[in-house]
């Protein structure tokens, strides 16, 4: 709305500066998502201070009743470990893996897309063709192959997410660059004799940030789902690392007696995904 009144194109309004933090503050939806993420971020950061128990410690005294008690506010899991502490430490797992994976996917895909859009020619063809090949693998199947070939570890999950998401990021970035490339400020920089990399990173990158940030939030949500799913399928980080997806699958067999064992970590995963989607929706609404 504002963009049309002021006569600015969507790209200029959608630029990086226009988004954070002023844009964020004006969107209630985005702000809600932000608060949820900040909550989990703080929990993840201070996990050792907040968690009442060691997440690996088995409390044999609690084996009789695994439900909620004064000692274990959210009960214990099937092995007798404190649920609250495991969820708190699970937040740390999520908030390490997801930013690392998304960050590397955006760096690789972003640079490839910038180069493809800016230089065109064979670089463009190469980036697009390699991207097509990677995108033809259904995402989960790509992870299954990678993780069974190289084993489950933090690095391999990050590599898998990077390979799966970088082509999509590159495609989006390339389209954005093509839209900005012909604009006056780029021509001016070119006429001023600036180098290709300078124009790409200093002139173009800040002006294509908007749609990329929305995409980043959405992909962060998918990654949370994916990491949870990998944990659930037994392909995630090796136990005993507290991992929400793994906790859900451990709790499934006890659904009829102690539903909290599966439901609490499932709720934790869902809250982070919803927060990412709210943030993306809010930022996109604002951009219109």
């Amino acid at each position: 709305m504002q963009s049309s009144i002021r006569g600015f194109g969507w790209i200029e309004m959608g630029g990086l500066h226009a988004y954070l933090p002023a844009r964020l503050a004006r969107s209630g939806i985005a702000l809600t998502g932000m608060y949820i993420l900040m909550f989990w971020g703080v929990v993840a950061l201070f996990a050792p201070l907040i968690a009442p128990w060691d997440p690996h410690e088995i409390d044999f005294a609690a084996m009789g009743d695994r439900g909620f008690s004064a000692n274990h506010l959210l009960g214990t899991d099937a092995t007798g470990r404190d649920m609250l502490s495991r969820i708190i430490w699970g937040a740390r797992t999520t908030f390490v893996v997801v930013p690392l994976a998304i960050g590397s996917a955006f760096i690789l895909g972003g640079v490839a897309g910038l180069a493809a859009g800016w230089y065109g020619g064979w670089i463009d063809i190469l980036v697009s063709r390699v991207g097509d090949v990677m995108l033809s693998f259904p995402a989960l199947i790509l992870y299954i192959i990678l993780i069974t070939s190289f084993g489950p570890s933090l690095t391999n999950i990050v590599i898998a997410v990077t390979l799966a998401y970088a082509p999509g990021v590159a495609r989006l970035m390339r389209g954005q660059v093509l839209a900005v490339k012909e604009r006056d400020f780029v021509s001016a920089a070119r006429a001023g004799g600036e180098s290709g990399p300078y124009i790409m990173f200093v002139e173009i990158l800040p002006n294509v940030g908007g749609p990329l940030i929305v995409d980043l939030c959405l992909r962060a949500g998918y990654t949370v789902i994916l990491i949870g799913t990998l944990g659930f399928l037994g392909l995630g980080l090796p136990p005993p690392t507290p991992d929400w997806g793994g906790m859900v699958v451990e709790g499934v067999n006890f659904l009829s007696i102690y539903p909290h064992m599966a439901l609490l970590p499932a709720a934790a995963v869902t809250s982070v995904v919803i927060a990412c989607n709210l943030l993306a929706d809010g930022l996109r609404e604002r951009a219109k």
Binding site: G245, V248, V249, L255, S256, L263, A266, V269, T270, N277
Partner: peptide, 23 residues
């Protein structure tokens, strides 16, 4: 639909298992 797209498949499955199987 917005809420449901935020739910991972395994969470949906656990929810349905709790309602229609366990309860």
């Amino acid at each position: 639909t917005v809420t449901l797209t935020s739910l991972p498949e395994f969470v949906v499955a656990v929810g349905l298992l709790l309602i229609f199987v366990a309860s």
